[in-house]
Amino acid sequence: MNKRLVILESVAGPLYWVILAASVWVLLRGHNEPGGGFIGGLVAVSASVLWAIAKGSDAAARRLPTGSPVRLAAIGVGVGTLAGIPAFFSGESFLTHWWGEIPLGFTEFAISTVLLFDIGVYLCVWGALAGYALALLALGEAEDGGEATEEGRS
Results as ranks from 00 to 15, higher is better:
A60W: 11
E147A: 05
A148Q: 08
L123P: 02
G36L: 07
V77L: 12
V45H: 14
G140M: 01
P65Y: 14
W25I: 15
W126G: 05
V125Q: 00
S112F: 04
L8K: 04
T96L: 02
A73G: 01
R4G: 10
L136G: 09
L123D: 02
V70N: 06
I119M: 08
G84V: 05
F106M: 10
S68P: 14
R63I: 09
F109A: 10
T107M: 14
I7T: 15
F117D: 00
L116R: 00
G67Y: 02
G127F: 01
I75V: 15
L42A: 12
G91W: 01
S93I: 04
E151Q: 09
F94V: 03
V24F: 15
I7S: 14
L50K: 01
T149V: 07
A73P: 02
A135I: 08
L104G: 04
S57Y: 05
F106Y: 08
V114M: 10
D58W: 07
F106H: 06
A59M: 11
V11C: 12
W17R: 10
R62Y: 10
L104E: 05
E92T: 09
E92S: 07
P86H: 02
A73Y: 00
A148Y: 11
L115A: 04
Y132M: 05
G84H: 05
S154D: 07
H31I: 09
L104W: 09
A12W: 07
H97D: 11
L27K: 08
L82R: 06
D118M: 12
